[in-house]
Design a binder for these strands. Structure first.
Lengths: 259, 259
DNA sequence: CTCTGTCCCTTTGTCCGACAAAGCTAGAGC
DNA sequence: GCTCTAGCTTTGTCGGACAAAGGGACAGAG
């Protein structure tokens, strides 16, 4: 599309990617197409130097690219191995992007309404006993910390991760994560600011688990909606929905990014 | 959460992040909190060497991290400047992750049903004249290439990006992108394999634009559903919905990743 | 025998210095 | 005023170097 050639081109544009990029691409290819499986060790830097025939600095730049992309990690002993990118890490990149694009809480709210409703529908339909047990465990912890806004907000975030997990739909799990990460910091503020916030939040969770147990889709959707509307009402007491996420996010970004 | 300390810890874990990471974090912080605005130039590598007081190799490793994260880019002259992470680039990272997690087309289908319906609802409600013009332009191009499966698939992908854009909800735009990127390669196969595929696809687009124009939410949702169900029926003629995305994706991954 | 401290080798993180290629800049020449 | 070239700048890559930390083998203490 870049330049329309009037005749069939004789030559393909030659590949001028820098060496570190080629190193990264080569390793990525091996991981993506399965020749290197998650968990498999990649050689040491020196091994890669020998294999690719480039300088160690070049190898290291390539490694940084893959590390940031979540495809490889260093274990405790700092040895390299392939790994499955973790949703929460990838999502935090997206959250950051959303912040930079100055999305508003209205957009966040609308999208989350859709995504969380879809999650609960999946969970109602397909949650396993184990999923339900995890949710119940989370609920118990929430009840124990209902007075502590920070802890409760953390539990709330985890609860919704668990619901999404119970939906058995990983695409949904991933899709909801960026928005959810941006929600999280505000939940704490709301629970702090609104007297009835904590108990209502826990009550909603209880109803949601109940709906999943009874495979009652209507109830699940209803309580998810209410839960989010509660959030919205609480939020609007502090700020406008049309406010950009930027300010509120900043205070919490650093802490969150340290996985 | 990593290790529960029984008493209040006396010491914070000391910060042992490597220097290149600190460089990346420092620059990232400046960008995220707005002191460096998208488009602003970052200094040359040599400048950064002076400012951070570390070696150029170290600086370069830090730069790779930020580049991969989409926070900085090099323009034509390869000078560094801050930039807004682009959705499609971030999403391709997510798509890759989904592939590695071996998600099935069923998950993809279910999630997309939710996300595309939400997009059209937003579009019906808030599409501007400009959005509609873009969609109409896309439709015209689709009609022109209805016989060419590859081109038509490309138009289809773009059409849905435009619908999401018309929803004015960037969170949704971002959330749908990973799944959409994985859909794209299959559309071509389906249009090739199913005789009526192309015309039906274009017809659906026409109805969707019409629904947006008339602000007819019901029609929008209905045709989005039909459109996706068409995809599903077509797909099931080639393969099972429970098949993992992995195989089909591989052939198209490289081409797509070269932006 | 298990545990512990030590020594050595490997690996990583960082630094230094160097050079070719490509971009940019400014002055020479018209 | 315009073009062209020479020189400076910047990037991508290279080679080599070294300190710090990890891991393993091995000897000695309990």
């Amino acid at each position: 599309m870049e330049f329309d050639l009037p005749v069939a081109p004789l030559f393909r544009p030659i590949d001028v990617a820098p060496a570190y990029q080629k190193v990264a691409d080569a390793i990525e290819r091996e991981i993506v197409n399965g020749r290197i499986k998650p968990g498999d060790p990649i050689g040491t830097e020196h091994d890669l130097v020998r294999q690719f025939g480039v300088n160690r600095s070049t190898i290291r730049e390539g490694i940084r690219v893959l590390e940031e992309g979540g495809l490889i990690r260093r274990d405790s002993s700092r040895r390299l191995h392939a790994c499955l990118p973790r949703y929460s890490k990838l999502a935090s990149r997206l959250s950051r992007a959303l912040v930079l694009h100055e999305v508003t809480f209205r957009e966040l709210y609308e999208a989350s309404m859709t995504l969380e409703v879809a999650s609960i529908e999946g969970a109602v339909e397909r949650a396993t006993e184990e999923n339900i047990a995890e949710l119940a465990g989370n609920l118990a912890r929430s009840e124990a910390v209902v007075g502590d806004a920070a802890m409760l907000a953390e539990c709330d975030a985890e609860f919704h991760v668990l619901v999404a997990k119970a939906s058995q739909n990983r695409v949904l799990q991933l899709a909801r994560e960026p928005a959810a990460q941006l929600f999280y910091p505000t939940t704490e503020m709301i629970v702090t600011g609104v007297a009835e916030g904590g108990p209502r939040l826990v009550a909603a969770h209880r109803h949601l688990i109940d709906a999943i147990r009874r495979r009652d889709r209507e109830a699940g959707v209803l309580w998810t909606r209410r839960h989010l509307q509660d959030w919205r009402r609480g939020f609007e007491k502090i700020a406008s929905l049309d406010r950009s996420v930027e300010h509120m996010y900043m205070e919490h970004a650093q802490a969150a990014r340290r996985r």
